[in-house]
Design a protein around this nucleic acid. Structure first.
Length: 275
DNA sequence: CACGAGACCTGTTCGC
DNA sequence: TGCGAACAGGTCTCGT
């Protein structure tokens, strides 16, 4: 489900409160209940529960597609993968069908990690870097310049789309925003990374930032019932629009497969440059 | 190093 | 209507 803008939106809502629910900042944890064992990556279940239930939430933030809860001592890291979501439940709200981990606060509110497909993972660690160390740069970080981006592109010989999805290369992009950014840039997803000229790499970085900022501004992309509230879906230009006309030239949007991922391109605007 | 296939899971939609 | 195949926002591991 979530890419950088969706994770950012969820972290913001949990930090500041949303939809009548209170901020989770400063709330004290009193218990936790794990319903699907594999959801917890680290540590073992007994250590997790005994360690977490004495701590309170100091801050909530995002790195790549991870949501980070800074607690008094430890850090709780959550990766939502394909179908995960974080929901604040009130004292009298019923449990959700797909709740995999529930954290109970002294206030009576609960944080439920819901995850239909069970791909999501949770870590409780003393040093977040043990989990995050291999992540690439944040695309919206100002110190990540076009020069840096270009140099890292030409240092590899990779198909562009799989490279942009590689979280050790750049952190936070997923299938939707990559397809959108490549279409805006008029670049074919199979273009080799070391064949891009500087000006095209610069334009690509600008468009990556544009689609991410717009996604954040619209509070994410709603694809189905799992993710609620985001308005970006109406603005997608190619993603899951096979057969519809390209907004640039009117040609029919085509679906191909790249790196085993469904990929949406305009065959007229995005020509593969081979030489 | 780069890439493809398969695995991990459940649910919805598509095609016959 | 029914039923299996294809597909879904992500990432990991293994083999070539």
């Amino acid at each position: 489900m979530p890419e950088l803008p969706e994770v950012e939106t969820i972290a913001n809502r949990l930090r500041s409160g949303w939809n009548g629910q209170p901020p989770l900042i400063n709330q004290s944890i009193k218990a936790a209940n794990l319903m699907w064992a594999r959801t917890l990556a680290e540590p073992d279940q007994d250590s997790f529960i005994s360690r977490i239930q004495t701590q309170s939430v100091q801050d909530i933030r995002r790195r790549g597609k991870y949501i980070i809860f800074d607690l008094d001592i430890d850090h709780l890291l959550i990766h939502l993968r394909m179908s995960g979501d974080l929901i604040v439940q009130g004292k009298y709200d019923p449990p959700g069908h797909y709740d995999r981990l529930v954290i109970y606060f002294q206030s009576g509110y609960r944080l439920a990690f819901q995850d239909m497909r069970k791909f999501g993972r949770v870590w409780l660690v003393q040093d977040p870097q043990t989990v995050l160390h291999s992540l690439g740069p944040e695309p919206l970080d100002e110190t990540f310049t076009a020069q840096v981006f270009f140099q890292s592109l030409i240092a590899r010989h990779r198909q562009l789309k799989p490279l942009l999805l590689d979280q050790t290369f750049i952190a936070g992009l997923g299938n939707i925003y990559v397809d959108e950014a490549l279409h805006l840039s008029k670049i074919h997803p199979l273009t080799l990374s070391d064949s891009l000229e500087y000006s095209r790499a610069e334009g690509l970085l600008q468009n990556i930032r544009r689609v991410l900022r717009q996604g954040i501004q619209r509070q994410g992309t709603t694809i189905d019932w799992i993710y609620r509230g985001g308005g970006n879906q109406e603005f997608l230009r190619v993603y899951q629009r096979s057969g519809e006309p390209c907004p640039e030239c009117g040609e029919s949007i085509q679906r191909i497969v790249v790196g085993q991922r469904g990929t949406h391109i305009c065959p007229h605007c995005q020509i593969l440059d081979t030489h």
